[in-house]
């Protein structure tokens, strides 16, 4: 599955292993196995966690300092719950990598980035039709949006800046 971020395609150093049995250095485990993976992590592996999009951000709060990556599932591109979960995790102070996992479309890339995602783990079926150039192009089509607190340059602060410089 191709992995992309705001700079382009990148290699995935993470291995998905639901129960954490993989011996990889960077492993993404299922939420149900997270406690066990963290408890048994004597040798300093990097632990990430994969969650479905009906998991509450507050349920992850105790782990935010301990996991390096949170992968949020997007079962289909029309299901926008992951955007809110990402926003909440960032508000809770999560500083690690936020990954969107599923068939998003390039037209949603800017939204994902603005809500706090770093990268998209995309199925081949979508990546074949929508190459990385489309993702990078779509990410920049709207230069300023109207919401404060969502990453992208926003019009309200731009207006404020224009007022103070005049």
């Amino acid at each position: 599955m191709p992995l992309l971020d705001r700079t382009g395609l990148r290699d995935d150093i993470w291995v998905r292993s639901e129960d954490g049995a993989s011996g990889a250095e960077h492993v993404i485990v299922g939420f149900a196995y997270l406690d066990a993976a963290l408890a048994g992590n004597g040798r300093g592996r990097k632990i990430g966690v994969a969650i479905a999009n009906d998991v509450k951000a507050s349920a992850l709060e105790p782990y935010l300092e301990q996991v390096e990556l949170i992968s949020i599932a997007f079962p289909n591109y029309g299901d926008g719950r992951g955007f809110s979960i990402a926003k909440q995790l960032r508000a809770l102070g999560f500083k690690g990598v936020l990954r969107a996992h599923g068939p998003l479309i390039a037209d949603q890339f800017a939204y994902a980035l603005d809500c706090g995602f770093d990268e998209i783990d995309l199925p081949d079926s979508v990546a074949l039709r929508q190459p990385i150039e489309q993702w990078l192009a779509m990410a920049g089509t709207i230069s300023h949006t109207y919401q404060r607190g969502y990453g992208a340059q926003n019009i309200l602060d731009a207006r404020r800046a224009a007022r103070t410089t005049v």
Partner: peptide, 13 residues
């Protein structure tokens, strides 16, 4: 109207 236009979080409700 402005706040709700292309809201990154609330466009796939």
């Amino acid at each position: 109207r402005q706040w709700s236009s292309l809201h990154p979080e609330f466009d796939y409700l």
